[in-house]
Amino acid sequence: MSTLEIKGLKVVVDADGNSKEILKGVDLTIRSGETHAIMGPNGSGKSTLAYSIAGHPKYTITGGSVTLDGQDVLAMSVDERAKAGLFLAMQYPVEVPGVSVTNFLRTAATAIRGEAPKVRTWVGEVKEAMAALNMDSNFAERSVNEGFSGGEKKRHEILQLELLKPKFAILDETDSGLDVDALRIVSEGVNRVKANSDLGILLITHYTRILRYIKPDFVHVFAAGRVVEEGGPELADKLEEKGYAEYVTA
């Protein structure tokens, strides 16, 4: 049982020489096996939260803490956070020309597991995970995310989730840009990982659509850089009906 605890997190981002406070004191605690949906309007700071936890250099933490089982996540380098058990499925996965998916996955798995995976079992493991996500096997030879369609990029993120087996996964708008079929495949992938492990999930989304496939235990409404309302799955239904208007004007 692990716990990811975010307390009073404040984050600024530098844009055009001015620093702007995006997160204004975020409190959130996620335990293994729990699925938390973070919902909010565009520009509310949802993605900033995701990237700040993962350690993107663009964001500066000005207050608060993030701990994983009591360990200071903010003191860790980006790769150390991943090794500690955090995974960020990105909204816009980055293209890395010339680095094949195979090479990338193996290098990442080696880093996370602390030793190179055994060749024979590894190949099978990758094949199986790719097949489960409806990914063509020629995918493995392509450069990381280069020329991938939106759906392929998201599937590739979930493929990594399956292979790297983190303690906590932050899914940053994984549903964006997916058609119904792709959304179902990707969601099933997430659910499969959760069923096979004790994954804790922080699901960031603008829309309630993905929540039909990935059932949240808790829903947090995010607006203007902080959590403004919390509840169970029924809160998502309310948002579906009424939108974010009351939080934005508040």
């Binding site: 980006v78 790769d79 991943a82 090794k83 990105m90 996965p93 990338f104 290098t107 996370i112 790297l164």
Partner: peptide, 19 residues
């Protein structure tokens, strides 16, 4: 690119080498 690779546990030098 470096952030993406590092966020998968790949140490900074290894990420640079890959890039």
């Amino acid at each position: 690119q470096l952030f993406y690779l590092s966020s998968r546990g790949i140490p900074a030098d290894e990420a640079r080498r890959l890039v």
